[in-house]
Every structure is written in structure tokens, then in C-alpha cells.
Amino acid sequence: MADYSTQELMIIAAAREIRDGELVFVGMRLPITAYGVARLTHAPNAVGMFEGGVTRYAPAEETLYTMCDPANQRNAAWTTGLIQVMGHLQAGRVDTGFIGGAEIDKWGNINTSYIGGHENVQVKLPGSGGAADIAAMSKRLIAIMNHEKRRLVERVSYITSPGYINGEGGRAKAGIAVGGPAAVITDKAVLRPHGPANELHLSSVHPGHTADEVIENTGWELKTAPGMTETPAPGDAEMTALHQVDREGFWR
């Protein structure tokens, strides 16, 4: 069995969501590495976009602290403005978008603005950044979160980034033509929408965890999807690619 950290497993699970030839809205931290792994394994033609105005054919050669670091500008495919790259979202050209979040609910709605809601602010979070745009306009959204009961809740107190809003037809009613969460990757499991209501179901449990433990740590009554499996452990090729991208071992 390969030796890997939980974060490395999450990165590889995220990389598997990227398909070859796709335009990917990458985001910071973990998805940057996931994009790099996907490119070196099954998706050599995936193009990565960063909302600050960077587009890349290959990940940067150094560890990044932000998407705008000098190392992400060097040898980019395109350095331009925010509207030029985020316009690709609005034009319906972005296949997969990644975001993180502080709080998510069973319909995949994400809150990064106000814990407790706008009228009764308990914790002021930084806000949308580009997340609301990526969630509304990517064809497929992948969310990455820590799996805690206080983070995976029945209903978020403020929707920064829309998932399926309130279930079946929720996005259509809001006027959103495309997309919605395709996967929520946590440190314990992968959740996916299932059924006409698109409620998030337990799709796979990471090695070393159990379905009961995942359900216990979820703030709504989490149902299991038919054919629920164990998340496949990282393969040798995936780990080799990961080590090539994460040279400094930041995620080890």
C-alpha cells in the first residue's frame, strides 16, 4: 500500500475529477496541486485558469502562496485581467471549477460570507472572492472541505455560492442554466448529488474511515448512494505525479 497523507488522497481524488482537454478554474492551494497531478496523469491537455488573470498549460514550478505569485506568472499561457478569464465562466466555456468553503449544506450550497446569516452575524468570513461566480457558472463544481459536523450542515445560513439551492429544479428556478456541485471532497469521504433532488449522498469513504463515522460527522441525515465504495487509494503513477508537482512536500 502506498504511503500517503489525507491531504494527498484529497488532492488525488480532486485530480480524478478533471478530464482531459478541459478548461479548469483552479483556485488556490490544494486544487493547484490537483490540476498538476491531472496534467501529468490522465489529463495532459487540461488548461488551468486563475481568477487574478493567469492562464496556464502547466502548473508553476515552485510552491505558490497565492495565484498571483511571480512563479505563477512566469511561463504562463496568458497573463491578463480578471474579466478576461472570468468571462470564460460566463460564456459557458469552463468545464470544472474548484472552490473551498467554511460551511456547506445538503444541497451543496456554500457559505463563505456570514456564519449566522447576514442579519445576525456570528462570524464574518472573508466573502465570495470568485467563489459565487465559479459556483454559478462552471459546468461542474468540485468543493473541497474539512468534514466536520459544524461545517456540513442541514441548511447554510447564507448562500454565497449556489449549489442546488433547495433541491429539484432549484438552479433552473434561480435562472442558472448549467452546472452544480458534482463532488464534495472531504478529508473523510466523497459526496455526490443523487436523485432528482440532487441531495448530496455518500459516494465513497476514504480508506481508514467508515460510513458510520462519516454519517456521524455530517450535520444532516446523510444517505448513502447506491453502489457506495471505498475511495480508491492513490496509485503509483498518481503518487509519482504528485511528488513531481509537490516538490517541497508541502502536502505530505
Binding site: Q90, A132, I159
Partner: peptide, 24 residues
């Protein structure tokens, strides 16, 4: 800012549909 820069009366967008940003 784009609308401000180029004198548009407003900019129509497809984003933030379904988000509480529209409400707050």
C-alpha cells in the same frame, strides 16, 4: 468597474443568480 470605466448605465451578468449576494 467595467461599467464605470466605459460609461455603461449598468452591466447585465449571469453570475450571482441563486446567491444571497443579490439579497444582502
Amino acid at each position: 468597474l467595467f461599467a464605470g470605466a466605459y460609461g455603461l448605465p449598468y452591466a447585465p451578468v449571469r453570475s450571482i443568480l441563486g446567491s444571497d449576494i443579490i439579497n444582502s
